[in-house]
Write a protein that binds this DNA or RNA. Structure first.
Length: 505
DNA sequence: TTAGGGTTAG
């Protein structure tokens, strides 16, 4: 009965039964304790779980590995990561599931690299338990988050070698991992090779294509999915609308937005509205975007307003930008990035007085800007760069290379953007146009440290600025390199002097 | 006597 409740929507009933059992003087067996722990996880009740843990020790069940695995998961889901690890350390035996829970604990705690370390250890048989299909799922998620393509490829090999290659859930994870690590081609290979595809496979592929700027292909995949008789769900439409927005397909976007509820019974959620606001905003239809936000049944969140604020920056729409900031202030959600966007909106129309005013305001409010940071993976090692970074051991070579690239690109027609863009600001004193943005440093390092022709993959925490975007474009032609930059919202593929996206012009 | 545990995709 406790088990039934722990799986139901009434987990607290399971906890009540457990208490009643104890009141009647009955000692629960490890199974019952495990079920009630699960109830505590579902109730997010830290206190309840702590009580159960104490009783487990009293009952003498502290050596039951399966019960301890549940307890570990309990601590992990309550964000008590040290306690979860302590339980793990005290387990007399650890099987694959216990190691899996440790991996998920690390991932939840942001210790993503340690999660990969556990996979290493399991694969090398140093811990007596081999990775199973669930291990692979968890590790692939970690790889997606880190952009760890090489490691993800290793997990892929492991999956093939151990006969998991046809598992739909694993293939779905592989599609997501390859897409998020910048390899849509590989994602598509996995997708094509699947004997059967479900709504998750299709949605993952559509989102992957969308994030890489292949809008038309993403929409084509949606229609193909219809022909195959797979019903789309909310996440499918998030992918489709995202495809429209990244490829500037306004009419198609409206069409999908209208038909999703009418024909497919999927009610638009905040993500769908967000995609539409992004799409309309990028297309310059700022008023339509604003009206759409006002028409929403749910209250718009800060992210929604920020999307519109970004569009105001692109089009230099000062009055709407000011209005959006008002909404953000009302939500008490204003962040450094918001002021930077407003500031850039003013600077895009040359209103320097206002620029100075906003800067002063930022200083007064002690608003800290997020430093731009770019990473590049070389033979499994992640190299990190900040703006004007001089901490890399090969800094001299990198700056020499950057100057050399600058000269070559100038010959090919690259002109540095002079408008004051503040995306990558380390401190508000710095004019970003005068400094070396983190992605430029990472690209220069890529040219320097990889053989000619190697694809340069850079991951950036913020959105890349117009100038760096131009720089990458020209570089891809002059140096004959494919450059892939993953910024905060999407991938940019630069090849032969062009980019796959339509965000910058 | 029987069964019932723990991790899990976009």
């Amino acid at each position: 009965m406790i088990r039934a409740y722990s799986l139901s929507n009434f987990p607290e009933e399971g906890f009540k039964l457990y208490r009643e059992m104890r009141n009647r003087g009955i000692t629960p067996d490890p199974l019952s304790s495990s079920f009630v722990t699960k109830s505590c996880i579902r109730m997010s009740s830290l206190l309840g779980g702590l009580q159960v843990h104490a009783k487990i020790l009293e009952d003498g069940h502290q050596s039951d590995s399966l019960l301890l695995t549940t307890l570990m998961n309990f601590y992990s889901s309550c964000q008590k990561f040290d306690d979860a690890c302590k339980v793990f350390d005290e387990m007399p035996q650890r099987d694959t599931v216990a190691w899996n829970v440790l991996i998920s604990c690390y991932t939840r705690n942001g210790r993503t690299r340690d999660a990969l370390g556990v996979f290493d250890m399991m694969e090398s048989k140093r811990c007596g338990s081999q990775p199973d299909d669930v291990t692979c799922l968890l590790v692939l998620q970690a790889c997606s988050n880190l952009g760890a393509l090489e490691f993800g490829g290793r997990v892929h090999s492991y999956i093939r070698e151990h006969g998991f290659g046809n598992a739909v859930n694993l293939c779905n994870s592989l599609i997501a991992m390859y897409s998020r690590c910048g390899c849509v081609d590989k994602a598509y290979q996995v997708f094509k090779g699947m004997p059967s595809k479900d709504v998750i496979s299709w949605s993952a592929m559509i989102s992957g294509l969308a994030s890489h700027g292949h809008g038309r292909e993403a929409i084509e995949a949606f229609w193909e999915m219809q022909r195959m008789g797979v019903a789309p769900d909310d996440q499918t439409f998030t992918g489709v609308l995202c495809a429209c927005s990244h490829s500037g397909l306004v009419d198609e976007g409206w069409m999908f937005f209208d038909c999703m509820s009418k024909e497919f019974s999927v009610t638009p959620n905040v993500h769908h509205y967000g995609c539409m606001v992004d799409l309309l905003g990028r297309a310059g239809l700022l008023e339509q975007a604003y009206q759409l936000i006002l028409s929403m049944r749910v209250r718009p969140d800060a992210a929604m307003w920020r999307t519109l604020l970004g569009a105001c920056r692109i089009y230099g729409h000062v009055s709407l930008g000011e209005c959006v900031i008002e909404h953000l202030i009302e939500l008490k959600a204003q962040e450094a990035g918001d002021y930077v966007l407003l500031l850039n909106t003013y600077s895009s129309v040359g209103n320097w007085e206002k620029v100075i005013e906003v800067r002063k305001l930022m200083k007064e409010k002690e608003i800290q800007t997020t430093p731009g940071c770019s990473t590049i993976e070389l033979t499994g090692v992640i190299h990190e760069f900040l703006v004007d970074d001089i901490s890399h051991p090969r800094k001299n070579e990198i700056y020499e290379m950057l100057d050399e690239i600058g000269k070559q690109l100038k010959i090919a027609g690259y002109v540095a953007e002079v408008t004051s863009e503040l995306h990558d600001l380390g401190s508000e004193e710095k004019e970003s146009s005068l400094s070396y943005h983190s992605e430029k440093l990472a690209m220069a390092f890529g040219v320097l440290a990889t053989p000619p022709g190697t694809t340069i993959r850079v991951a950036k925490n913020l959105r890349t600025c117009v100038d760096c975007h131009n720089f990458a474009k020209v570089l891809s032609g002059v140096y004959n390199r494919v450059v892939i930059i993953r910024d905060r919202t999407r991938f940019h593929h630069f090849r032969e002097g062009r980019c796959s996206c339509n965000d910058y012009w």
